[in-house]
Design a protein around this nucleic acid. Structure first.
Length: 760
DNA sequence: GCGTAACCTGTTTTT
DNA sequence: CAGGTTACGC
């Protein structure tokens, strides 16, 4: 029980109040994660609860992983058996187990947003609707919000409100698109992200035996970031905890920033109604930030109406005022931030890892990246373009999906003619029409394609089917890595990339190898019991970031990310850039008061990430979508009480530059608003964005053929430097070399992937 | 069916 | 700007 002594009174109460419903209102920096992990540890250690009886739900993989690690520190290995994960991953797991009950195959595919969009695009086309009236993003968001409110397509079509809404908005067929979309997903054996929650609700609603089983299994239910749950998620947790009623929700209404995807603060009010015996505990002492930061944050959130009563305070040192800095351009803002980081490191002895740069939109990262690179400051980007969204990665994944679920329409479309086999859109349509018109599965239609496709296309499809069958055969007796390897080689994908000797081609080839490495890591990880391809694909579909990569790479890096991604994290120094009207608050969000308040909560989240120092900046011109735009300082800057902010560096009287005429190359001539000329100003460097994958730079390092590698030879590795070969190990089907690197010591390298040069 | 060039269009946050 | 789609000639 020694861990309890470090807690303050409400924290202590929150840990030991294990029985009955409980709601923790946890202010920013109040030690929420600590309380949650201790609570779970306490259940296991003091109440003899079996780990598998505990269900703990988070929003991000990162939060789940962090919590698991911290519980492990207290209770050891047992922590592994706690049902802990994101809503989506936990319920995907349960759905897989119970898939037959709702008519889905056990190996169902999870469609990512791209798959969903492609499918909607196709449906709109097939229905011969105007794609300008039915814009993909709009259609998808309507469908998504319906699903999040648990409205089926039948209900959607029958509901007079949605119908009249759609008619007034000139898109009366939306209900039909919704229907078709659901039907096509079902035929393909696929669920999108929203379906994972929607179908879990259906499963628990229509199958009392299943509900009963899980209700009794989960004696304790915990929900993190409760303010961000939508109705669909809330209903699931409510049902699951209806028997034992030991449900603990943790949240902070001031940090609710996901209303745009259906999160509903009402859930907090509903909770007290649904569980009238709820014990409410408020954690109000902030341990994270200086007084100045806490006060500034409070002064901001105070501008919102209708927050829950809460008084966040701190005993920490007063700290410095918040500097507000104005730059002439986004590029200059980057420079100022980079310089400030450089100085902070020198004078305050900060490490890169203690610094974060936060922004509203992913596209803002560019100017910061360029400045940091010029200053030789190492950085990493969290989120943004994910590794798994790259074309070559999605291509190989499409093959793997096809092996596991050969009815997966989107995977089929992606890989049927890749590499080129002479199967064009005409043949693809015939195959699909043959399936849909005759009520057949896609896979069956593919297998009989020889009967209705003549010539080259027909025989190509037959070869494709044979290829998939061979891979499936492998899949019945080999682990994910071996199957993926087999598929990459036999599909011709790897060969095609290998033959592409352009810089981009090499990089794509490296990326595919990187994916194979990721599969290898997955199968090598002792925590993964199921090493099948199916298990790997499940995992990958719900992992959005590459943080498992970051672990191995350089750890001491400045973190760049959106404010959304930063929730739950903390840094000694935080640079919040782009404090400009229209950008933050975002122009697109300003249609209602509620929207503005959500943006303000986002500002609150950003401020409260900082422990010691918060640095605000804005640019008066910004390069966006190929245009220079003038920017005004954000209205949010006025929300901070003036005693907490230092505006001495923001008061430059220079007029913002205005774009004049067209530009070519790197510079633009600009003019002041008063008509006087200003010197040419650097606005944008026309360069490709930096390669962000873990294998960046790999293209410069061409590996040698290692077939003749022998013991005792000297080799060079891109990352580990020079070393000598100790042993060559050919067991287990993989050729591996044990290399003793000067400095880093012995490493075992997979020769098929390791980037090795033979030295001298 | 394939390859290229011209054209078009988005422009927010995430599982 | 960058990525996706269309039109067109082979």
């Amino acid at each position: 029980m020694e861990y309890l002594s470090s807690l303050n009174e409400p924290q202590h109460e929150a840990v030991v109040t294990t029985e009955g419903p409980c709601m923790l209102i946890a202010g920013a920096g109040s030690g929420k994660t600590r309380v949650l992990t201790y609570r779970i540890a306490h259940l296991i250690r003091e109440h003899n609860v079996e780990p598998f009886q505990i269900l703990a739900l988070t929003f991000t993989n990162k939060a789940a992983r962090e919590m698991r690690e911290r519980i492990e520190e207290v209770v050891g290995n047992e922590a592994r058996n706690v049902w802990m994960g994101t809503f989506h991953s936990i319920f995907a797991r349960i759905l897989r187990f119970e898939s037959d009950k709702i008519g889905y195959p056990q190996n169902f595919t999870i469609y990512d947003t791209d798959d969903s969009k492609t499918l909607i695009r196709q449906i709109v086309k097939e229905m011969e609707l105007d794609d300008k009236q039915y814009k993909v993003n709009m259609v998808l968001s309507r469908i998504s919000s319906a699903k999040n409110r648990l409205m089926s397509w039948q209900q959607y079509q029958a509901d007079p409100i949605t119908q009249s809404d759609d008619e007034q908005a000139m898109r009366p067929k939306l209900g039909l698109i919704y229907q078709r979309y659901v039907e096509r997903c079902f035929l393909a054996g696929a669920m999108d992200f929203d379906d994972l929650l929607f179908n879990t609700n259906v499963l628990l609603r229509d199958h009392p035996d299943v509900l009963n089983k899980y209700q009794h299994r989960f004696r304790y239910v915990l929900v993190d970031e409760f303010q961000d749950t939508n109705i669909s998620q809330y209903l699931i947790t409510r049902k699951l905890s209806a028997v034992h009623r030991n449900i603990c929700v943790v949240g902070d209404d001031a940090q609710s920033i996901y209303a745009f995807r259906g999160a509903d603060i009402q859930n907090i009010l509903n909770f007290e109604k649904d569980f009238p015996e709820t014990k409410v505990i408020k954690l109000e002492q902030n341990y994270r930030s200086t007084q100045n930061i806490v006060n500034a944050a409070n002064s901001v959130i105070y501008k919102n109406k209708g927050q829950l009563q809460k008084n966040v305070w701190t005993q920490n040192a007063p700290g410095a005022k918040i500097p507000l800095v104005r730059a002439n351009s986004d590029a200059e803002e980057g420079k100022l931030v980079a310089n400030s980081i450089f100085e902070a490191k020198a004078s305050d002895g900060l490490k890169n890892a203690e610094i974060a740069v936060l922004y509203r939109t992913n596209s803002q990262s560019r100017s910061i990246e360029e400045a940091l690179r010029k200053n030789n400051i190492k950085y990493k980007i969290v989120g943004g373009l994910s590794f798994y969204q790259r074309k070559e990665i999605k291509d190989l994944l499409a093959y793997l999906r096809m092996i596991v679920n050969p009815d997966d329409e989107q995977a089929f479309r992606r890989c049927i003619n890749l590499p080129k086999r002479g199967i064009g859109p005409g043949s693809v349509d015939k195959i699909l029409v043959n399936a849909f018109d005759n009520g057949k599965r896609l896979w069956d239609s593919l297998q009989e394609a020889g009967t209705f496709l003549k010539g080259k296309a027909g025989s190509s499809v037959e070869n494709f089917v044979t290829l998939i069958k061979r891979c499936q055969m492998e899949n019945t007796r080999k682990d994910a890595f071996e199957v993926a390897n087999f598929t990459a080689k036999n599909s011709g994908l790897l060969k095609e990339l290998y033959e592409d000797k352009t810089i981009e081609g090499l990089s794509r080839y490296e990326n595919v190898q990187e994916l194979l490495n990721a599969v290898k890591e997955f199968t090598d990880n002792p925590e993964n019991e199921d090493k099948s391809l199916n298990a790997f694909l499940q995992d990958v579909a719900l992992v959005t970031d590459m943080d498992n990569k970051d672990k191995k790479e350089d750890k001491d890096t400045v973190t760049l990310m959106t404010i959304h991604m930063s929730k739950g994290l903390e840094f000694r120094y935080v640079y919040l850039v782009g404090m400009e009207e229209d950008l933050f608050p975002s122009q697109m969000m300003l249609s209602s008061r509620e929207d503005l308040e959500e943006e303000r909560r986002l500002f609150y989240v950003a401020i409260t990430r900082a422990k010691e120092r918060l640095h605000l900046s804005y640019a008066s011109t910004r390069y966006r979508f190929g245009n220079i735009r003038n920017c005004e300082p954000s209205r949010f800057l006025n929300d901070i009480d003036s005693e907490y902010i230092d505006i001495s560096k923001s008061g430059s009287k220079r007029q913002p530059a205005v774009r004049m005429g067209s530009y070519t190359g790197q510079f633009v001539r600009s003019m002041r608003e008063d008509g006087k000329r200003q010197r040419a100003q650097e606005v944008h460097v026309k360069k490709k964005p930096p390669v962000r994958s873990a294998s960046s730079g790999a293209a410069d390092f061409k590996a040698d053929d290692t077939t003749h590698l022998q013991e005792g030879m000297k080799v060079e590795h891109q990352k580990f430097g020079i070393g000598s070969v100790r042993k060559i190990d050919e067991s287990g089907g993989n050729r591996k070399a044990v290399v003793d690197f000067d400095g880093t010591g012995e490493k075992t390298l997979l020769l098929s992937f390791a980037k090795l040069k033979i030295h001298g």
